[in-house]
């Protein structure tokens, strides 16, 4: 006489355990990876949105340009540029370029922070030419560029 006893095989338990472990490990990994990616995207989005929003909101103007003659003393002229913040967020003047038809200089600015509704004077030696148009280009740290022209007859 033959008896068939129904028994759960050990291999099934092991297999299930292995499967659960694998699912847990892989799932955790995938979730962690996804979260990491999401965090990265989020950070990028935050940075980009913040920069662009601030760039949109920053409103620098070149309020006045003075071509200063100084030749009796040193033989070198200079340019005074007054930059005013008429917007609602502060900005940093990063670069000022002064040029005319024959020459061009670019000055990297340190300490060019201009708070809202305030002005800052930037002065640089520059041999401007009588009767020639001098172009002043101001670039902020966020990349906003404004320009103005002046001429001494």
């Amino acid at each position: 006489m033959i008896f068939f006893v129904k028994r759960r095989a050990l291999s099934t338990v092991v297999t299930t355990a292995l499967m659960l472990t694998a699912v847990a490990v892989i799932g955790t990994g995938v979730v962690a990876w996804s979260n990491s990616n999401l965090r990265t995207f989020e950070n990028n989005l935050v940075t980009s949105a913040s920069n662009n929003t601030n760039k949109i909101n920053e409103m620098p103007i070149i309020e006045n340009v003075v071509l200063v003659p100084n030749y009796p003393l040193f033989g070198i002229n200079s340019v005074n540029v007054t930059v005013t913040n008429v917007g609602t967020v502060g900005f940093n003047v990063a670069k000022i370029q002064i040029s005319d038809s024959t020459q061009s200089i670019t000055k990297t600015v340190s300490g060019g922070n201009v708070t809202p509704h305030s002005s800052k004077l930037f002065s640089y030696s520059y041999q401007w030419i009588h009767g020639s148009v001098t172009t002043i280009q101001v670039t902020t740290a966020r990349g906003t560029t404004i320009s103005a022209q002046a001429m001494q007859p």
């Binding site: 996804s34 999401l38 995207f41 949105a49 662009n52 929003t53 949109i56 909101n57």
Partner: peptide, 25 residues
């Protein structure tokens, strides 16, 4: 995964809304 996605999309929408407000201003 779904919660993360929904959260990200919600956050993105908020950011876009702020961005939109800035442009309007």
């Amino acid at each position: 995964a779904l919660a993360s996605t929904v959260g990200y999309i919600t956050y993105s929408m908020n950011v876009l809304d702020n961005y939109n407000q800035s442009i309007l201003a």
